[in-house]
Design a protein around this nucleic acid. Structure first.
Lengths: 145, 145
DNA sequence: CGTAACTCATTACCTATGCTAAGGAAAACC
DNA sequence: GGTTTTCCTTAGCATAGGTAATGAGTTACG
């Protein structure tokens, strides 16, 4: 594992935490569809990546409690972005699948997000941006740990 | 500026957004002092870095609306972590200063945060961690842009 | 000067989004 | 076959943010 005991790493940790929190708050405001919360967007993204999933699986992946996921899935279904089907072998569970409409929305949202981040990146040079690009997968891994 | 038009960067942008959001959610739960919200912590951090500031300045820096900052400052004052003084030249404004107690708490919290992130970093190798460390300042810059 | 317009902080109220606790149905396990 | 466990859900609550409206203080302009 990495050694986090000396000062530079402690500083990095603090910078990371602070930046992630603030950036997260700003990203919330840049939602592509005003009627969709950040977590709802994130769920659609997860479904696009992983295909179908049960509410429980989604709750674990999004680090949210099951009751919260129940509501999120219900809202997504009401908006026609997700389909709910009975589970094949286990009748307690349900299977959540994103619709074609969700795919289209994700594509649209990707464009808008990029536009916003492009504006943000005006203030970054190529070197800074490449550091960010290199760190993106690591942050993802960390978020899933 | 960086070129965000091709696919790799679009992917990086998506990964970044998703990871920042999820990591932010998990960091919220790892608060060092249960009685302090993440934004309250962030305000104390800002004060430690920048010295005194008015509520309005803090609201802008934390990307929060003024009324929210009013409440945050009031809570911090009630906990003895912040001192409120009248502004020298402008009697509309107030000056917020962190107390010695806040400094001690920040130091304590830094230790606890590091412990948590150390546990997280168990799953990272040295290369991944160094990428993260390189990106930390860039993320901070982005968060402040 | 004095009043109009603006700015800063605050108050009051509302909403969004998460949580815990509790329940009901299906599966798994003696 | 009855008990325990697992999964989703319902109900109620807490937190943390936002908007709109208020009040006090400052600045600008006529």
């Amino acid at each position: 594992m990495a050694d986090l005991s000396h000062g530079d790493d402690a500083d990095a940790v603090n910078a990371l935490r602070s930046a992630v929190m603030r950036l997260g708050r700003r990203l919330k405001h840049q939602r592509v569809d005003e009627t969709l919360s950040p977590t709802e967007m994130s769920v659609l993204g997860t479904l696009a990546r992983c295909g179908s999933a049960t509410p429980g699986e989604l709750a674990r992946k999004e680090h949210v409690q099951p009751p919260s996921m129940t509501r999120i899935v219900a809202l997504l279904e009401a908006k026609g972005l997700v389909r709910l089907e009975p589970h094949a072998e286990d009748r307690r569970q349900k299977v959540v699948t994103s619709t074609e409409r969700a795919e289209a929305m994700l594509e649209e949202s990707r464009r808008k997000r990029n536009a916003w981040l492009t504006a943000m990146a005006e203030g970054l040079d190529e070197d800074e941006w490449s550091k960010l690009r290199a760190a993106a997968p690591v942050l993802e891994k960390l978020a899933h740990l």
